[in-house]
Simulated assay, not measured.
Amino acid sequence: MDESSSIPRLGQIAKVIRGRDNGKYTVVIHVVDERYVLIADGDKRKFDNPKKKNILHLELQDEISAEVVNSLNETGRVTNGKLRFSISRHIENIQTDEHLKGE
């Protein structure tokens, strides 16, 4: 992982690699500082009750959800539906990529 990809960005999809939610995908909804972010998935972890997470416990994905970023910039919040949609679309993209590589 290069240095630029270890800096979390608003709307970035992340995979939890440590803790109770290990293996789950989530979205960065706020960057607290260089070590911590607030994450939510719109399902178990709603926007109004985000989890503060050390970025060392996350595997940041290349994908950044434009819908989430736009919504946060315009209104300061994002719907849980948009979070769920962004995550499900990311998972579909991963499965499609894996399927194409497998052929």
Rank of each mutant, 00 (worst) to 15 (best):
D33H: 06
V28D: 05
D21E: 13
V31K: 10
H57F: 00
G81E: 15
T79M: 04
I55R: 11
R84T: 10
E3M: 04
V27D: 00
L10P: 05
G11Y: 10
N73W: 08
V37M: 09
R20C: 02
E103T: 08
V37F: 08
F85D: 11
I64Y: 01
V37I: 12
D2S: 08
P8G: 03
L56D: 14
H30D: 15
I87Y: 00
T26F: 03
E59Q: 11
R35C: 08
G76S: 12
K51Q: 10
Y36I: 03
V32I: 15
D48I: 08
E92V: 12
V32E: 14
I87L: 01
V69T: 14
A40K: 06
K44W: 03
K52H: 12
D43Q: 08
K15V: 05
V16K: 03
K24N: 13
L56E: 13
D2W: 04
K101Y: 04
S65Q: 05
I55C: 02
L83W: 07
I55S: 01
G23D: 10
V27T: 10
V31G: 01
Q12I: 03
Q61A: 12
V69D: 07
L72T: 06
N73S: 14
L100H: 06
D33P: 07
E63K: 09
I39P: 11
A66D: 15
R84M: 10
E92R: 14
G42C: 09
H99Y: 07
L56P: 00
N22K: 10
E74D: 14
G23C: 07
G11Q: 08
D97I: 05
E98K: 15
D43R: 15
V68W: 02
I94E: 14
D43C: 06
Q12K: 02
R20T: 11
I55G: 01
E63M: 05
R35K: 05
K52I: 09
H90W: 07
N93K: 15
I7F: 04
